[in-house]
Write a protein that binds this DNA or RNA. Structure first.
Lengths: 235, 235
DNA sequence: TTGACACATCTTGCATGCATCATTAGCCTC
DNA sequence: GAGGCTAATGATGCATGCAAGATGTGTCAA
């Protein structure tokens, strides 16, 4: 379901992949309007593949199609963000538990390496690098659970959360990077000890802490307008 | 994301809803081919809304579209079924825990009523009625968790599992109905006691038991051919 | 000035037609 | 007779055109 190989896969798949990237990377703000004809012109295809791509993104929860009105980038409310984080906590906690139960799998060494590099990045104050490593860390945890369906649902969830954007905001502005890195270490230790119960508990704490940090940042910013900015600049 | 109000919602939504129903209710066997033109003729619309509906079902995981070849009802492998059950266990266990934490919500009385009726149905040997009540029970647990995103992902998961069909097979052929009913009672008691930890554990046990029952039935049947039957009868 | 109403405009929803590619049946060759 | 090749067939992928509905604006009346 996730786009892996994207070479020569038809216009519709290309468009969907591109739009997903733009939304998660923040090039398209929540609330922004996605005009079929404009996208068709931009991508050099007709409206049909654009429509199909938008439909797909809708069922993935990244855009909302108002019939006869238009398509808009999802602007999750505060409540929805909290709900999504609750599900994230559930899935990721379970993934940590499953990972621990699997013992010495290839992902374990990758996770160790990831934590090593994260320590360096934090020590060097390289936040951009740390953000990238955070993504890799959570991805390793999920894939290390060895359940492709869990991975699928998790990826969809992260898209719905627009997580990439949030983790960026949160880590850059809350000063939580060292704490987050430390929590990653603790979870890794529990996994290395094959202590699934502890790994799950620590991971759930970690997710809640990052959620709290994000909420603090959002509240501090006043923020709602920052999440669902106006479609077009004021005249 | 789930079709709730389906009146006058455009051809595409109608078609998607219809096809979902046919697949989950078993009118369309896994592996069956869904021809765009045939469906277009049957529904009295053009291929366009059919295509969009199929695309949507694909991202929901209920059908597989082979480019330039055709669309087929998903035929989950044994491995995929087990993976999906693992996710089911995670989500539903968490839902039971969250439900218990919410205390005296409207769903609790509905759950009590459901268990009462289930007892009656089992006592009367009315399996069809019990199957319907089982669906309602699990739906109440999920909605009672009070997290709409959790509900969304759960519904999608059940569609991917073709759960409706499986629970039917499993309960009808394993003789597990009384045991299942008893487990429902125990979970309810834990929820009533607001013991989230126990509710989660019991629910996870319950899901695993139903998974095991299904696997036994599948193995006993020889079964793979029963899951992904041939597209067309042999000549 | 404010309110409602009608209309122009822009959007998507759907129908239709053509191009492209996978499949398969038949034929030819070995 | 078996295997490979070719062409017909049927499917989907995409382009385009038209229709229906929603939104915003301008006008008119109170």
């Amino acid at each position: 379901m996730q786009e892996t190989a994207s070479v020569q896969r038809g216009a519709q798949a290309r468009v969907a992949h591109q739009l997903r990237a733009r939304i998660t990377q923040g090039n398209l703000m929540p609330g922004a309007v996605l005009s079929e004809s404009a996208l068709a012109q931009e991508f050099g295809v007709s409206r049909t593949p654009i429509r199909e791509a938008l439909k797909q993104l809708q069922t993935e929860g990244m855009v909302v199609i108002k019939p006869r009105v238009g398509t808009f980038v999802s602007a999750p409310s505060r409540l929805e963000i909290n709900e999504l984080f609750e599900v994230k906590e559930i899935l990721e906690g379970a993934a940590a538990r499953l990972f621990a139960a699997r013992g010495n799998i290839p992902e374990l060494e990758l996770l160790r390496e990831n934590v090593r590099r994260s320590d360096e990045a934090v020590a060097a104050g390289d936040l951009d690098r740390f953000v990238a490593l955070v993504h890799e860390y959570h991805d390793l945890i999920i894939t290390g659970a060895g359940n492709s369906k869990l991975t699928q649902h998790y990826r969809t969830l992260m898209n719905q959360l627009l997580y990439s954007r949030f983790v960026h905001m949160s880590l850059r502005r809350s000063g939580r990077a060292p704490q987050s890195d430390h929590e990653h270490q603790s979870i890794l230790q529990a996994i290395e000890a094959r202590d699934g119960v502890t790994a799950e508990r620590l991971m759930r704490d970690h997710v809640r802490a990052s959620q709290q940090a994000l909420m603090d940042v959002l509240n501090f910013d006043g923020a709602e307008h920052r999440l669902s900015g106006p479609t077009s600049p004021a005249p």
